[in-house]
């Protein structure tokens, strides 16, 4: 039985981002595996923990330089990694990326595909759902609890919403996108790190994926980014002074009512 985890490279959440003209300049930014994808990977690894014959693939459309980060997925327990790096792919277009991922996934024949609920860069939340659509599979998004039944080829999944918890039932194969809280990702062990060096790591071109350049090129994009700017800085605030805590609180409530008018 095969499982696949799709991942994306994003800037470290600590990173400060600078601009080069109208665009974000990521040239000097530390890149990491999208944090939400880590919950997806952990969910696959939990299934593998229970059944050693399960094979977990880590799949990414991204630069070959992502090797360092993707090897960490192997160190954590994934069996094989595939990075599709081809400049013909419009990496900014989730539908183009999904096209490539879906083509690779067809060859891997997984029963489940895990992903993060969204990339913490552009927050499109579209790629994994589009993969499901292209594979003609169901999906459940933003999952915080997942229980597969491989014998029955079914699953249940819980997502959180403003109405309350939502429980889904579905059939496998399926795409599941992970919310934080789905699990607690493990750390790589020393043994895992040593083993990772010997695990298969493939770097593919579009041709290996079996996708034509015309299907995933920049001219297919339906949306264009016109401009990126920094948000306006907040006006400096002030520390409320006062002898006793009670005086400060009193003054705070006064300014919230009279100056800020928010009470």
């Amino acid at each position: 039985m095969n499982l696949a985890v799709i991942t994306k490279l994003v800037p470290d959440t600590e990173a400060r981002l600078s601009l080069a003209g109208d665009k974000v300049d990521l040239s000097d930014v530390e890149m990491v595996i999208n944090p939400f994808d880590e919950y997806g990977l952990e969910e696959a690894l939990k299934i593998k923990d229970a059944d050693e014959s399960v094979k977990v693939y880590a799949l990414m459309v991204g630069p070959e330089s992502a090797r360092k980060q993707v090897v960490n997925c192997l160190a954590l327990g994934a069996d094989e990694a595939i990075v599709v790096d081809d400049e013909a792919i419009d990496g900014a277009n989730p539908l183009a990326v999904a096209e490539v991922l879906a083509a690779e996934l067809k060859k891997l024949d997984p029963v489940l595909v895990f992903a993060g609920k969204q990339g913490v860069d552009y927050d499109w939340g579209l790629t994994a759902v589009a993969v499901a659509q292209k594979l003609n599979w169901p999906h459940v998004g933003v999952v915080k609890q997942f229980t597969p039944d491989f014998a029955a080829k079914t699953f249940t999944a819980v997502t959180e919403s403003d109405e309350g918890d939502l429980a889904f039932s579905g059939s496998l194969p399926a795409v599941i996108t992970a919310e934080k809280g789905l699990n607690t990702p493990r750390y790589a062990s020393l043994k895992g790190i040593m083993k990772a060096k010997k695990k298969p790591f493939a770097v593919h071109k579009l041709a290996d994926a079996g996708v034509g350049a015309a299907a995933v090129g920049a001219d297919r994009a339906k949306v264009e980014e016109v401009q990126a700017t920094h948000p306006p800085a907040r006006e400096p605030g002030r520390i409320i002074q006062g002898e006793e805590i009670a005086d400060r609180v009193c003054e705070l409530v006064r300014v919230l009512r009279e100056e800020a008018k928010v009470l």
Partner: peptide, 9 residues
């Protein structure tokens, strides 16, 4: 951290 402006093409 960044504000993006987008257009439909």
């Amino acid at each position: 951290k960044i504000i993006g402006k987008f257009r439909f093409k």
